[in-house]
Lab assay of single mutants.
Amino acid sequence: HTVDVQGVTYHFDNPEEARKFAEEMAKRLGLQVHVKDGRYKVE
């Protein structure tokens, strides 16, 4: 499970961890979480 944050890619084994990380980063950076091709993108 992959999370892209402003061009940096993070990998997680656990989909729940990936989702939480994406939401946390989006909140911290004031950005949105998009799901695209099964990847989380924070932009």
Rank of each mutant, 00 (worst) to 15 (best):
Gly30Pro: 00
Glu23Ile: 14
Val5Pro: 00
Gln32Ser: 13
His11Asn: 11
Gln6Cys: 15
Gly30Ser: 06
Tyr10Ser: 04
His1Pro: 10
Glu17Ser: 12
Thr2Ser: 12
Val5Thr: 04
Lys36Gln: 13
Asp4Glu: 14
Ala18Asn: 00
His34Met: 09
His1Glu: 06
Lys27Asp: 08
Lys27Met: 13
Thr2Lys: 12
Asp13Val: 11
Val35Asp: 05
Lys41Arg: 13
Gly7Ser: 06
His34Tyr: 14
Leu31Met: 14
Val8Met: 11
Leu29Gly: 02
Gly38Leu: 03
Gln6Lys: 09
Gly7Pro: 01
Thr2Met: 14
His34Gly: 05
Glu16Gly: 10
Asp37Cys: 15
Glu24His: 11
Gly38Gln: 04
Pro15Glu: 14
Arg28Gly: 05
Leu29Trp: 06
Glu16Arg: 09
Gln32Ile: 13
Glu17Gly: 09
Arg28Leu: 13
His34Lys: 12
His11Ile: 13
Lys36Asp: 13
Lys36Arg: 10
Arg19Glu: 06
Gly7Lys: 05
Thr9Ile: 14
Ala22Gly: 03
Val5Phe: 05
Val42Glu: 03
Glu16Gln: 11
Glu24Gly: 09
Val5Ile: 07
Thr9Glu: 13
Val3Ala: 04
His34Asn: 09
Val35Arg: 05
Leu29Tyr: 07
Arg19Asp: 03
Asp4Pro: 01
Ala18Thr: 04
Thr9Ser: 11
Ala26Trp: 02
Gln32Asn: 07
Tyr10Leu: 04
Lys36Ile: 15
Lys20Trp: 10
Val5Gln: 01
Phe12Cys: 07
Val5Leu: 08
Gly30Met: 05
Glu23His: 15
His34Glu: 07
Glu23Ser: 08
Glu43Arg: 06
Gly38Asp: 06
Ala22Gln: 00
Val8Ile: 12
Ala26Phe: 02
Lys27His: 10
Arg28Asp: 05
Asp4Ser: 07
His1Asp: 07
Ala22Phe: 01
Glu24Trp: 13
Lys20Tyr: 11
Asp13Ser: 12
Pro15Ala: 12
Ala26Pro: 00
Leu29Glu: 02
Glu16Asn: 11
Asp4Leu: 08
Ala26Lys: 01
Asn14Thr: 13
Gly38His: 05
Tyr10Cys: 06
Glu16Ala: 10
Glu17Leu: 10
Pro15Asp: 15
Phe21Ile: 02
Arg19Trp: 09
Val33Thr: 03
His34Thr: 15
Lys20Glu: 12
Tyr10Asp: 00
Glu16Trp: 12
Leu31Glu: 02
Met25Asp: 01
His1Ser: 12
His34Ile: 14
Leu31Ser: 04
Phe12Ala: 01
Gly7Leu: 04
Thr2Pro: 14
Asn14Ser: 12
Val33Lys: 01
Arg28Ile: 11
Asp13Ile: 10
Gly7Tyr: 05
Asp4Ile: 07
Glu43Asn: 07
Glu24Ile: 11
Ala18Leu: 02
Val35Asn: 05
Glu17Cys: 14
His1Val: 08
Lys20Gly: 09
Glu23Lys: 07
Tyr10Met: 04
His1Gly: 12
Gly30Cys: 12
Thr2Ala: 14
Val33Ser: 03
Gln6Trp: 08
Val5Met: 05
Val8Pro: 00
Asp37Pro: 03
Glu23Asn: 11
Ala26Thr: 02
Leu31Val: 06
Asp37Tyr: 04
Thr2Trp: 15
Asp4Gln: 08
Asp37His: 06
His1Tyr: 13
Val8Cys: 14
Thr2Gly: 07
Gly38Phe: 04
Gln32Gly: 06
Val42Ile: 06
Glu24Lys: 11
Asp13Lys: 10
Lys41Pro: 04
Val35Leu: 13
Glu23Thr: 11
Glu17Ala: 12
His11Gln: 11
Gly30Leu: 04
His11Ala: 10
Asp13Gln: 11
Lys36Phe: 07
Gln6Gly: 08
Glu17Arg: 09
His11Thr: 13
Asp13Pro: 10
Arg19Ala: 07
Met25Lys: 06
Pro15Tyr: 05
Phe21Asp: 00
Val3Gln: 00
Val5Arg: 01
Glu24Gln: 11
Asp37Arg: 04
Val8Leu: 11
His1Lys: 09
Gly7Arg: 05
Val33Ile: 07
His34Val: 14
Lys20Ala: 13
Glu16Pro: 05
Gly7Gln: 05
Ala26Glu: 01
Tyr10Ala: 03
Asn14Met: 10
Val3Trp: 00
Thr9Leu: 14
Pro15Lys: 13
Arg39Met: 15
Gly38Glu: 04
Gln6Asn: 08
Lys20Asn: 12
Val35Met: 12
Val8Ser: 09
Arg28Pro: 02
Lys41Ser: 15
Leu29Ala: 03
Val8Arg: 13
Arg19Pro: 02
Leu31Gly: 07
Ala22Tyr: 00
Phe21Cys: 05
Asp13Thr: 12
Gln32Cys: 14
Val42Arg: 01
Val35Phe: 15
Asn14Pro: 02
Glu24Asn: 09
Tyr10Pro: 00
Asp4Phe: 08
Lys20Leu: 13
Met25Asn: 06
Phe12Gly: 00
Glu24Cys: 15
Lys20Phe: 11
Tyr40Trp: 13
Ala18Val: 02
Asp13Trp: 09
Gly38Ala: 03
Leu29Val: 02
Thr9Trp: 09
Ala18Lys: 00
Lys41Cys: 15
Arg39Pro: 02
Asn14Trp: 09
Lys41Glu: 14
Tyr40Leu: 10
Tyr40Asp: 03
Lys20Pro: 02
Arg19Asn: 04
Asn14Tyr: 10
Tyr40Phe: 11
Lys27Arg: 14
Glu43Lys: 05
Val35Trp: 15
Gly30Thr: 04
Asp37Gln: 05
Glu24Asp: 12
Lys20Thr: 13
Tyr40Lys: 03
Lys20Met: 13
Lys36Pro: 01
Gly7Val: 02
Leu29Met: 07
Lys27Cys: 14
Phe21Ala: 03
Val3His: 00
Leu31Pro: 00
Phe21Ser: 01
His1Ile: 09
Phe21His: 03
Phe12Ser: 00
Glu43Pro: 03
Leu31Arg: 03
Arg39Val: 15
Val35Glu: 12
His34Phe: 14
Gly38Pro: 02
Met25Ile: 10
Glu16Phe: 11
Ala22Cys: 05
Met25Trp: 13
Phe21Arg: 01
His11Phe: 13
Gly30Val: 03
Glu24Phe: 14
